[in-house]
Simulated assay, not measured.
Amino acid sequence: MQNVTGWVSLCACAVAAFAQSRLDQYRALQPEEPRPLFFRYMEGPAQTGRPVEAWNASFSQLMGLIVKAQSEEAPRDRVIAYLNQFKDRYPDQIVLLHYNGRARLPQFERERFFPGHWIHYEGALVTSDIPATEEDTTFSVERAAGLFRMNQGRYRNQGDDVTVCELSEDGRPDWSRCEEMKLIAVDGAARTLTVRRARYGTAARSFSANRAWAAAHVIEGPWVNDNP
């Protein structure tokens, strides 16, 4: 048993030493101060295809980058290639991923999410039948004013993302029987919503009056000009 314990301790020490040696290569983790890093500005030039040499010349002058390389907030599919070559060329510079959890676009990696993962604002009872169609649809709700909003997002040109789901026998939203929709018009006085159907990987389905619930996503953003 002592031999096993000693071997485990030796392995743990070796792993810790290896990890520390990898961290020691980064200038930003050394005692010297200040420790300046570029923050996010480099994403745009990478996404729009600035020549790599010019990009490197602009953003290799400090100790590293804090950068968005996923498309959860806005398209960033071209950024990773720039970062990979940057790390090969400047191994002493640290690269940290910036990820936005509050403003994630609903279409980003949607396969691993379902409507119940979203936080929703206060919702309203659906008071008219909703047909199973992919055409834009207008339906009635018990209350629309103050609950569903247009002119949202960075450019103030988009409506809320809205989840409509069936109600269970106890009157609670059943997130397993839902459809995601995009609000394109709201009439508070008439208490109606007009929506674009079957968004974010969900299929158009029918809902019965007084047996369904509609609620808007709690989000910040989106930061893109067009989030259909």
Results as ranks from 00 to 15, higher is better:
D160R: 05
M1N: 08
F59S: 09
R211A: 05
E180A: 10
P75S: 05
F86G: 02
S60I: 06
E135D: 10
S168K: 00
Q158W: 14
Q30P: 09
A28T: 08
P51M: 02
E32D: 10
P173T: 00
A17Q: 03
R156Q: 08
Y99M: 14
A212S: 03
E53I: 12
K68N: 09
Y155C: 03
A203E: 12
A14Q: 06
W118R: 09
H120R: 15
D187Q: 04
C11F: 09
P131V: 00
C13S: 13
E220R: 13
E32I: 11
A216G: 07
W213V: 04
A145K: 14
A57K: 06
Q107E: 12
W55K: 01
L23G: 02
L147G: 02
C11D: 13
G171E: 07
D187W: 00
M63L: 04
G159D: 03
A132F: 07
D92N: 02
C178D: 06
N151M: 11
A144E: 00
S21V: 01
A81V: 06
A28I: 15
G188F: 06
N56L: 14
L65E: 01
N100M: 14
G221Q: 05
G49Y: 01
N225M: 10
M181S: 04
L193K: 00
E122K: 11
A189V: 12
Q47G: 05
A57P: 02
D129G: 03
V67C: 11
T127M: 00
F207Y: 05
A12W: 09
R76L: 08
K182I: 10
M181E: 05
N56I: 12
P36K: 06
M1D: 11
T48M: 10
F114G: 12
F38N: 13
Y99T: 08
F207V: 07
N3P: 06
S9K: 15
R110I: 07
K87E: 15
P91V: 02
R110K: 10
P222A: 02
A189C: 14
E53T: 08
L83C: 02
D226T: 15
A198E: 09
F108M: 07
C13T: 15
I184P: 00
G171T: 02
T127F: 03
S21L: 00
R211Y: 15
S208I: 11
W7M: 09
I130P: 00
Y99Q: 14
P106C: 03
T194I: 00
P131D: 04
Y26W: 00
P115H: 07
T127W: 00
V141S: 03
R177S: 11
P222Y: 04
S208V: 04
N56P: 10
G146A: 08
E169T: 04
M42Q: 06
R177V: 08
G6P: 13
A14Y: 01
Y121N: 09
E180G: 12
F139M: 01
S206A: 13
M63A: 01
E169H: 02
E32P: 10
F108E: 11
Q107L: 13
I66A: 15
P228W: 01
Y82N: 04
R191S: 10
P228K: 07
S208T: 12
A212Q: 01
L10Q: 11
A145H: 14
E166H: 11
S128C: 09
P31N: 06
R110D: 09
R78M: 03
R35A: 14
D136Y: 14
S208K: 00
Q85G: 06
V162A: 05
